[in-house]
Nucleic acid binder design. Structure first.
Length: 274
DNA sequence: CGGCGGTCCTGTCAGC
DNA sequence: TGCTGACAGGACCGCC
């Protein structure tokens, strides 16, 4: 569900709400997420202040005083929503409630429970496997044609699979990989090693472009994504291929095709993308 | 060991 | 109306 632009939008909206604020109490209703929420999770968070809200790939990093960090991943269906009024009725998929002063509350809701919520010491963050594995941040410079070509030209995988690999670029997911590949006219099933240096350069330029654009539209609300204020994103209006099977390609008019790689639906223009 | 398929979980929607 | 199967934005594990 949430890819880099969505997580970044959650980061920005939450940061405005909780930075500098004290956590007065924490409730855990459901521990069985992708990684079981630790028994001492609530105890570790209680009484701490939020120093800043950051992001690494699709991971949200909520830094707390005392050198602690609360790491959240929203999986496919996760939401972190800030409520001014904690009397708002609880949903059956609300798993964690973090209470702030004056009745404000941050809720972690995740129907499919593919999300993750752990607290650790800041000094352990970079060596924590899920973070340690992550590749380059696409919006912080450093993503260039040479970098991408290095990965692509010696991989026997499909270009789609390489771009989806969080060890290469952190933060891309199914929607944005489909969109980026349409914009550079490469078919998702193309073997990575067949992508030329020039095309790798196109990709390196287009990836940050699409991600920044999506952030400006506050992410894609294809179905259930919401930001930290429970608001929908609007980038779905800008999607050129994702979820547009059967519609006409805006460049050439050919019907957009839907196919699949593994269990993921992929969308492309059979004429523009080779 | 690189690459790929299956799996975790619930909700929704299309088709019968 | 109700049942069934397919599918959904992610990540990890295990098998070949």
């Amino acid at each position: 569900m949430p890819e880099l632009p969505e997580v970044e939008t959650v980061r920005r909206t939450l940061s405005e709400r909780i930075q500098g604020h004290e956590i007065v109490a924490v409730e855990v209703f459901q521990r069985a997420l992708r990684v079981r929420v630790a028994e001492d999770f609530a105890h570790r968070l209680a009484g701490k202040h939020v120093v800043r809200v950051a992001r690494r790939g699709k991971y949200l990093l909520i830094f707390l005083d005392g050198a602690w960090v609360w790491v959240c991943h929203l999986g496919m269906s996760g939401k972190l929503v800030f409520l001014l009024d904690s009397t708002t009725p609880r949903d059956k998929h609300d798993h964690i409630a973090v209470h702030f002063a004056q009745g404000a509350e941050l809720r972690f809701n995740d129907p499919r429970r593919f999300g993750l919520s752990v607290v650790m010491l800041e000094q352990d963050l970079q060596s924590w496997p899920s973070i340690a594995r992550l590749g380059i941040e696409p919006l912080e410079g450093g993503l260039d044609g040479a970098f991408l070509y290095e990965w692509l030209h010696r991989s026997r995988r499909r270009v789609y699979d390489v771009l989806m690999d969080q060890r290469v670029i952190a933060g891309l997911g199914n929607i944005y990989v489909n969109e980026v590949l349409f914009r550079v006219r490469i078919r998702p099933s193309t073997r990575a090693w067949r992508v030329s240096r020039q095309r790798a350069g196109d990709l390196a330029r287009e990836i940050p472009e699409v991600l920044e654009d999506a952030i400006q539209w506050r992410g894609t609300s294809f179905s259930d994504y919401r930001d930290g204020n429970d608001r929908r994103g609007a980038f779905q209006s800008q999607l050129l291929v994702y979820d547009r099977a059967g519609e006409s390609c805006q460049v050439c008019g050919t019907h957009i095709k839907r196919s699949s790689i593994g269990n993921r639906g992929i969308f492309y223009c059979p004429t523009c993308q080779r």
